[in-house]
Design a protein around this nucleic acid. Structure first.
Length: 866
RNA sequence: GGGCCGUUGGCGCAGCCCGGUAGCGCAGUACCAUGACACGGUAAAGGUCACAGGUUCAAGUCCUGUACGGCCCACCA
């Protein structure tokens, strides 16, 4: 077996004069690309399919070290799987859909999207973008510009991924804004709608006032911000009794609809059911009991305003409170005061109307001080406030009509089913599942998927307009499947024509787009061509592996799992692999705001792709890793060493055949037995997606092989005078076999150097080679015994070297005599290795003495005789 | 507030699942041009495995707790 796996590929050895990494990356890459080796081929021989649901990188901006890091891990896994004989489907997509692209396009071209405009086929962007006066364009025009700009970025990114040696199939490139992804996304949404998994609802939702869009729970981010407790004096109706209420958001006082305390709170028990008058506005509100009020916070009684936070929403809903909306979608207080305000309350409110949160608060605090209803001074605190992760102003809660997909957030049986799915999925590392479970368990509402933005996949719906011109949100007009993708702002529903848009008796298009995750959650369906190639999809789905970062478990992973559950009634993949974080060299998380973001390509230029990949592959799955130039340099040294050791071994002889029957020498057999153990360990590690353990095992073996085995057998392998031809052949065959094997073991991690070396003696590509299997030809030496024997020999060699080192002599300095005292088993091993030891140590005579403990008596040759 | 992960020589990490003499790489020390490699080689030095208990003949490894670091989740009064 062994070499018999690839007999056809051998060619006469051709080793270069000087082995160097210079120019190697480009040369190797050229060979892969011209052969299109990473193209997915449908298996015709019954081999297994291994399909990878690759994360589509966001194209805006530079390639981040974290992205290169994660992709290297995936690539090592993909390359292993390919070598292990599986038909690997490793597609690539670009995530160009979404807000980051939108903002860049606005600035780059000087345009802004106005979805009410009609498509202008002749539109060209302004020659000189004017940031102050952006030209309004229709959504189709805007999307065309987004596609144009991202198309440029994608070319740059493709080049970077190719240079890193990421072995994706470039024939399967998709973009999340491309026609195919839009079609898939809209179709999947319509399926959800048809099955009742998608629905619309008018409800209070988190709202980003800068971007003026609704935001989903998965996009929240908590930030510690400065705030202050204000103690407000409410008055119990019909009495002078003052009730103190602490709040950090006094400006929401006009929206106050109740005071809430805990039902068991003795202080407030007698007050439940009574009413109070709010300060300044004098509005009469109830005092209610609810378990979510916490007696410890502030004065133990809270204002419920519509709406300050999600607790307010819960109270409002569960206690059937009225609504007093004061917050506008632009983050300013609305013009009109709540309806029930009397004249003086109206006057007071007028001082806040149209103001921002900050100014309105100032105005109200002024009024409270004047009326004496602000007790004491505000007490500054730091507290967590929810933000949209891409936003810079706190989220507000406003009522609007939005589309949702059910996700178990308000449906316990569905939630339990999704938790079960999480258990079915095999997580690597396993502890990452807990994050999924935390998220699913903590969901407090369905998935809000509509966004009031432009560059994304349109919600593929229209609504009927009645004869009075009112939009009937409940009368949804759905496109035909074969019309997808559609843009309802320019396309027209069946039975209508464009002239009826927005007219009584006509229709309007839904102006919104879907959450970017509503499309990204379909990457398995998009990449595997669910819509277009059913046979291919059935072959690839459920996919084998989803590799990704842990920070998007709550979005990408969860959403993908949810969509697959609804659509296919299955998991989208068997395995999920989470990579760790790349930290800066001081072990701090990289972030743009800290300015410590590292871009990797400079290092790839300086040290080669293999060197960078080595660093990435040293990090265990799921483990955070500090960026380390030292480690990259170590990778470069390893790559160089592989070239040089291979050059030595392949230089012994130009023979093409490697016949393990010719391995006759004990030292050689030991080495082969040890190699078998390494192959087994590397294989087992890779089968568990642990490229790092595989690399470690191979690397450790390889350095030892260079330092001990190659040094021991060099003289014999050269065929020096007095060496038996058979012994020479044994060494050559062994070394050659080991190099051919080790190079393949390294190929997933260091594809460039190993491809180069492979090419010195093979016609095919190592990327298409088979993964090594154990030779089993270690001739009766079990792995452990071989290791013991190896250690005995290596130990003697090390002691000899130590003696010379201490004497400050060259390793080539002669040894007149060597007396070895050791136990009988060790002596037997050493006698077998005697001629190699004599060659490696330049020893004239060896004597063996049985003893309890190993001890050497070394007599170095006289200095001048060296 | 709940949870997860980590804490091993100066630095970066492995070992822990399945307990049995503490390992790797880098840096640092001394030395070495020998026909693959100075982007090299050799050797020596360096750790009571965060802390406190427990289980055991035996604990870096298993159990309990504590501290510190990082992350995830949680209703912003």
């Amino acid at each position: 077996m062994g070499n018999a796996q690839h007999p056809h590929a051998k060619k006469p050895v051709a080793v270069p004069e000087k082995a160097s990494l210079d120019g190697l990356d480009g040369r190797v890459r050229e060979r892969w690309e011209s052969a299109d080796v990473f193209a997915f081929k449908k298996p015709t021989d019954g081999r297994e399919v291994f399909s990878i649901d690759t994360p589509p990188p966001t194209v805006s901006g530079n390639l981040h070290a974290g992205s290169a890091f994660g992709f290297t891990h995936q690539d090592a896994i993909a390359r292993y799987q390919r070598m292990a004989g599986r038909a690997v489907f490793f597609p690539i997509g670009w995530d160009d859909n979404g807000l980051p692209t939108e903002r860049r396009v606005e600035n780059y071209y000087g345009v802004r999207c106005d979805p009410s405009l009609a498509f202008d086929p002749g539109f060209t962007p302004p020659e000189k973008p004017d940031p102050k006066r952006k030209v309004a364009v229709s959504r189709p025009n805007f999307i065309a510009l987004c596609e144009e700009l991202t198309g440029e970025d994608e070319k740059v990114f493709e080049e970077l991924y190719r240079r890193l040696g990421i072995s994706v199939d470039w024939n399967f490139v998709y973009t999340t804004i491309g026609e195919h992804a839009r079609r898939t996304s809209q179709y999947a949404f319509l399926q959800n709608l048809a099955r009742g998994e998608a629905y619309q609802s008018e409800a209070p939702t988190a709202w980003d006032v800068s971007f003026q869009t609704a935001v989903a729970q998965a996009e929240f981010e908590e930030r510690e911000v400065d705030g202050a407790y204000h103690t407000l004096a409410f008055t119990l109706t019909g009495t002078d009794e003052v009730i103190k209420v602490d709040t950090t958001r006094p400006e929401l006082l006009p929206a106050c609809v109740a005071l809430i305390a805990h039902p068991d709170d003795e202080r407030y028990k007698p007050l439940f059911g009574k009413t109070v008058k709010t300060p300044v506005f004098g509005a009469e509100v109830k005092i209610c009991a609810h378990k979510d009020a916490s007696p410890e916070k502030g004065t133990g009684i809270a204002m419920c305003c519509t709406f300050g936070d999600s607790t307010d929403v819960v109270w409002w809903r569960e206690l059937n409170l009225p609504i007093k909306a004061v917050m506008g979608r632009d983050g300013r207080f609305v013009e009109d005061a709540p309806e029930d305000f009397d004249a003086s309350a109206q006057t007071a409110y007028a001082q806040m109307a149209t103001k921002t949160v900050f100014s309105a608060r100032e105005a109200l605090v002024g009024m409270l001080r004047e009326s004496g209803q602000l007790l004491g001074d505000p007490r500054p605190i730091k507290h967590p406030v929810k933000f949209y992760e891409k936003g810079d102003r706190p989220l507000e809660i406003v009522t609007s009509s939005q589309w949702y997909i059910r996700n178990g957030g308000r449906d316990a049986p569905l939630r339990d089913t999704l938790l079960e799915r999480g258990k079915e999925l095999q997580w690597h590392p396993a502890f990452m599942r807990v994050r999924y479970e935390d998220w699913v368990t903590g969901l407090n509402g369905d998935w809000l998927i509509s966004r009031q933005r432009f560059f994304g996949v349109s919600i593929p719906l229209w609504y009927r307009v009645d004869d009075d011109g009112e939009v009937l949100r409940d009368e949804v007009l759905v496109p035909n499947d074969d019309a997808l993708p559609i843009d309802p702002s320019t396309d027209v529903p069946d039975g209508y024509d464009e002239s009826q848009r927005g007219k009584p008796g006509g229709f309007v298009g839904d102006p919104d787009i879907m959450d970017t995750w509503a499309t990204s959650s379909l990457t398995p369906q998009i990449a595997a061509r669910w819509m277009d190639d059913k046979a291919l999809f059935d072959l690839l789905f459920p996919m084998s592996l989803r590799p990704q970062g842990p920070e998007i478990i709550r979005t990408w992973l969860f959403d993908t799992l949810l969509r697959a559950h609804f659509e296919h009634g299955s998991l989208p993949w068997q395995h999920a692999y989470m990579n760790g974080w790349v930290l800066d060299p001081d072990r701090k998380k990289m972030s743009k705001s800290k300015g410590n973001v590292i871009t990797p390509m400079g290092y790839v230029d300086d040290f080669g792709a293999d060197a960078f990949r080595y660093w990435a592959c040293c990090a265990s799955p799921g483990t955070d890793t500090a960026f380390s130039v030292e480690q990259i340099k170590a990778g470069r040294r390893l790559a160089t060493k592989i070239l040089n050791a291979s050059k030595l071994v392949l230089g012994y002889s130009a023979e093409t055949e490697v016949d393990l029957d010719q391995v006759t020498e004990y030292v050689d057999r030991i080495e082969l037995a040890r190699l078998d153990a390494v192959i087994e360990k590397a294989t087992a590690s890779f089968e568990k997606f642990n490229y790092a353990r595989a690399l470690e095992a191979t690397e450790q073996y390889f350095w030892d092989f260079c330092n001990v085995y190659l040094e021991l057998t060099k003289v014999r392998a050269y065929g020096a005078e007095g060496t038996q031809p058979q012994a020479t052949q044994s060494a050559r065959v062994t070394a050659r076999y080991i190099i051919d094997t080790v190079v393949r073991l390294f190929a997933p991690h260091l594809p460039f150097a190993t491809e180069e070396v492979w090419g010195w003696s093979h016609n095919n590509l190592i990327a298409e080679e088979s993964w090594p299997v154990a030779s089993g030809l270690s001739v009766g030496e079990a792995g452990a015994a071989a290791n013991t024997a190896h250690r005995v020999v290596a130990d003697v060699l090390a002691k000899l070297r130590g003696e010379k080192s201490r004497a400050q002599l060259s390793m080539k300095h002669g040894v007149e005599s060597l007396v070895i005292c050791a136990d009988e088993a060790s002596l037997r091993v050493l006698q077998e290795a005697e001629s190699d030891l004599k060659d490696a140590g330049v020893i004239q005579a060896v004597e063996y003495v049985p003893a309890e403990q190993m001890e050497l008596k070394i007599t170095l040759a006289a200095a001048d005789a060296g």
